[in-house]
């Protein structure tokens, strides 16, 4: 029962993130929404890995590497946003 609750929580988090990704306009908000979705997926994977007699190690390994790669992916996105912002500011300063 408990892991069903966590699975449902993971799916709900994914839904919140998906809604945010579609509706939000600001690029940073979109990035946060993608992260929330990703965390929902991790939570879902971990919840489904639990069984009465044993714990499935395969989803655990996926989540473990997934977290570090998600952090790196977020950092790459943030860096790209900073570059886009710099170009945006520079193009507005140019005389028309």
């Amino acid at each position: 029962m408990q892991e069903l609750m966590y699975s449902a929580g993971g799916v709900a988090l994914f839904g919140v993130g998906l809604y945010g990704l579609i509706v939000a306009g600001h690029i940073i908000r979109k990035l946060i929404a993608v992260n929330i979705s990703g965390i929902g997926v991790f939570m879902f994977l971990l919840a489904t890995a639990s069984h009465v007699e044993l714990t499935d190690p395969v989803p655990h390994a996926m989540v473990l590497t997934g977290i570090v790669v998600a952090v790196a992916g977020t950092a790459l996105c943030l860096w790209l946003v900073l570059q886009i912002h710099a170009v945006d500011v520079a193009s507005k300063e140019l005389p028309k």
Partner: peptide, 23 residues
């Protein structure tokens, strides 16, 4: 989005909770 998530939750409830062969 709510409909999609509810569908997934219904599918989880129907899913057989047997231990996967990979584990």
């Amino acid at each position: 989005v709510t409909c999609l998530c509810s569908l997934v939750i219904v599918l989880i409830l129907q899913h057989d909770k047997g231990i996967p062969p990979l584990a």
